[in-house]
Amino acid sequence: MATHGTGLARRRANLRRGAIATLVVVCLALFSGYFRESGDGPLHGVQSAAAGVAAPIQDVATEAVQPFRDAWGWVTSLKDARDRAARLEGEVEALRGAAIENRIRDEQLARLRALVGVGRELDGYEPVVGTVIARSFTSWYRSARLDVGRDRGVVQNSPVVAGTVQGAALVGIVTSVRGNSADVSFITDGRTSVGATIPEADSPPGLLESTVPGQLRLAGIPREFPVREGQAVVTAGFNAPALPSVYPYGIPVGQVTSVGGTEVDVERTVQVTPYADPRSLSQMVVLTPQSPQAKRRAEG
């Protein structure tokens, strides 16, 4: 009896170990296969199909928990409400002055555009509003999933913007798209880089990349250009002087918060704070390419 019991216990232990070892092998096979195959391989297809199935469920879950998320957002915003109020009062004063100046510039810009027919690149895009239905669970991936996909004309490499107090600002780019949902990588993700420029400094295109959480660094700006704190950073339309970007020219990205570098440096170190904080957004606008030029940009 004891022998029988010991034998069965050993058999159980072996089966248990075998099952766990099999699962470990499956995990490693999934991991290896996933990174060896191309973006349209079978495992990516399975992930995409699962995301498509989960999207409606996530949509419902997102709606259900929205009041709780709003309550959480309200509670967390209380801590810095007083500081924000004081800062915003100062900004309002500055913006009133800037608004008058901008109105004059807008009129000049409209006249110049009519004369030369440039600077209308955003006209080649159709805005599609999407609701965030899922977010990355880890800071290794700063990304979100929207409830709009191919069914609404969204394609890979479509720029994504969001409304801010400064107007529409760049949030990220569509990295994968399905029938009814699309994944967006934020500009604060380490794998995303944006060709950007500082119009007020008349700078050449530099490359904007994430550094610390919520901050960006604009590299490649020669030191002879008069970059100052507070200047606006917009997409350049190019990653380098001769390399077109998937982002059209002129989408606001953020504001210069510090300019560094020593006298011997060839380039400036420009820190940029993005206008939009993607973590707090529940809706975003996908700019779907419509014109031939916009479609060429999206094709990379």
Partner: peptide, 21 residues
């Protein structure tokens, strides 16, 4: 772990499944 990786916009598959396993 596998469900989380399948239902969120991350670029891995099998990693979380292994760690939670």
């Amino acid at each position: 772990g596998l469900l989380v990786e399948l239902s969120t916009p991350v670029g891995t598959l099998g990693v979380l499944a292994l760690t939670y396993l």
